[in-house]
């Protein structure tokens, strides 16, 4: 489902003496449907960078990132947009929404974007919000005013609204209480069961052990500090 080969990435800081910072070299990775991979490695080793590259959020210098037949490293913007709409989900640590949009709409949006019937989309959103213990009185409000934990759960509900065949999870269980952590892990297990290929970053080792089939240490992709 997701196949990464020879992937390299540099940052060039034009406004700081054009400093070139290599951050990734010859990354290889492959995830099959129904498989969950955990990225591990010390802080700054490039876990998030790799996730962002897979999502098309960061550009790649060379190599390929094939998700469901689309090479994100070379695809046109509209191809990536379509991939994100239909195939590739991403649950980041931060919720970014238009102010004023009610929580229920925020969660239902990925479904509405792929043309799901409005009632069905809202029903799915309600279901997820309820499972993630967001009080119903908050559903009509914009999540911008919510607490950090609530925002994160709204973000997870949004990420799981559409049954993406491939998913990227950036610390989905961080700072959640035991009950909600359990809900999120169940959601991940359900996604795996329906055949989703998942790449995740989990600092929570118990969670990692429970849902992940393999671990990939990104330190192996870090360029030698020789430069």
């Amino acid at each position: 489902m997701i196949k990464i080969e020879n992937l390299c990435k540099n940052f060039v800081l034009h406004n700081q003496g054009s400093a070139v910072i290599p951050v990734m070299e010859n990354a290889h990775l492959s995830v099959a449907p129904g498989e969950c991979i955990a990225l591990i490695g010390a802080s700054g080793a490039g876990k998030s960078t790799l996730m962002r590259m897979i999502y098309g959020n960061y550009l790649s210098q060379s190599g390929s990132i094939v998700v469901d037949g689309v090479d994100v490293a070379t695809a046109e913007p509209r191809e990536i947009l379509q991939l994100r709409r239909d195939t590739l989900g991403y649950v980041s640590q931060f919720l970014r929404v238009v102010p004023r949009v009610p929580t229920l709409e925020v969660v239902a949006e990925p479904l509405l974007n792929i043309g799901t019937d409005r009632d069905a989309a809202l029903a799915r959103a309600r279901d997820l919000l309820a499972r993630l213990n967001i009080p119903e009185r908050l559903w009509a409000l914009s999540p911008t005013t919510f607490s950090g934990g609530e925002q994160q759960r709204v973000n997870i509900a949004r990420g799981f609204a559409h049954s993406f065949p491939a998913m990227l999870l950036d610390e989905p269980t961080a700072s959640l209480d035991a009950t909600n952590r359990e809900v999120v892990l169940t959601l991940i297990e359900e996604a795996k069961a329906r055949g989703a290929a998942i790449i995740g970053i989990f600092h929570d080792e118990a969670a990692r052990a429970r849902v992940c089939d393999r671990e990939v240490d990104v330190t192996g992709f870090t360029p030698a500090k020789a430069a």
Partner: peptide, 22 residues
């Protein structure tokens, strides 16, 4: 520079865009 909005804003390639974003 052109590209996906979030890509251009989060990983700008051209010096001017980097300046603009920062």
């Amino acid at each position: 520079e052109t590209g996906l909005t979030d890509q251009v804003l989060d990983d700008p390639q051209h010096g001017y865009t980097q300046l603009l974003v920062s």
